[in-house]
């Protein structure tokens, strides 16, 4: 409870910061929206000619894309500090201050800053869902929204867990190679029907870096695709495993920081 109210307080304060720079904020909102619309346009251009791709209609792909925006935008809302973590917290030494506060380090890192513009993607995702649901035969009833919320939270948590583990690596070494950007780009792969990829990529998106669980599998289940019930049930399991791994790696990283001071 206390943590929740603290997170809310962080959110309110951070919103004030962003609104203090109105021009900057508006530009950012517009570019984010533009990016999302361009994404949908790309889906349209690539897929609208083909009637069925591996059993998926164009509307279903669009629905998948729209639904995928929900966990993605929630993740984007919270992940902003992870991008600058190595630079700001480790290199500039801001992590010292994090360690001096009586709040878990992860809470501080995840909730001290927000990418508020990401909420624009949430709105766009909802609009796409609303527009495509009738065409793919999905009723937007209470059951749907409850499942949507569960899938969104689990999906976003899974994204966060994966990137937290990767970010925690900077406790041991500077990421000069840059493993995070390519993996960030891979997130998009999980938001199309996995059947369009070859087996290696499909296996990787399911079991190695399971972005498929944050986008593809839950939607395939919602659309009533065959054999997807199992995968829908696996989502909380996979998320829990990756979250446990992330917290473990993170805590070890903090301990390493505490013994080396760098």
């Amino acid at each position: 409870m206390r943590t929740l109210s603290l997170i809310w307080q962080y959110f309110v304060q951070y919103s004030k910061v962003r609104l203090a720079y109105r021009g900057d904020f508006l530009t950012s909102v517009i570019t984010t929206m533009f990016g999302a619309v361009a994404g949908i346009a790309a889906v349209y251009l690539i897929f609208h000619r083909a009637p069925l791709i591996h059993g998926w209609s164009f509307d279903e792909i669009l629905f998948l894309y729209g639904f995928g925006l929900l966990p993605l935008s929630l993740f984007n809302l919270l992940s902003i500090n992870l991008y600058f973590f190595s630079e700001v917290y480790i290199v500039q030494g801001k992590f010292d201050r994090v360690l001096l506060r009586p709040v878990h380090t992860l809470v501080q890192i995840l909730f001290e800053q927000f990418r508020i513009e990401a909420l624009g993607d949430t709105a766009l995702g909802l609009a796409v869902l609303w527009a495509t649901a009738p065409k793919v035969g999905i009723a937007l009833d209470l059951r749907f929204w409850l499942l949507a919320i569960v899938f969104t939270v689990l999906g976003a948590t899974l994204y966060l867990a994966i990137f937290l583990s990767l970010t925690a690596v900077s406790f041991w070494m500077e990421d000069r190679v840059g493993i995070i950007p390519p993996i960030y780009n891979m997130m998009a792969f999980g938001r199309y029907p996995l059947d369009i990829y070859g087996t290696p990529i499909k296996l990787m998106l399911s079991w190695v870096i399971p972005f498929g669980f944050a986008g593809f599998y839950p939607v395939a289940y919602l659309l009533g695709k065959e054999g997807m019930l199992l995968f829908a049930w696996l989502l909380p399991v996979v998320t829990a495993c990756f979250l446990a791994l992330a917290v473990l790696v993170w805590n070890r990283g903090v301990r390493n920081y505490s013994s080396t001071g760098s």
Binding site: Q9, Q13, K16, V103
Partner: peptide
């Protein structure tokens, strides 16, 4: 916090502690 008024920082600290 760099960008917000001092009193806002204080209020956050009030919550934290």
């Amino acid at each position: 916090w760099w960008d917000i008024g001092v009193v806002e920082s204080f209020r956050l600290l009030q919550k934290i502690y």
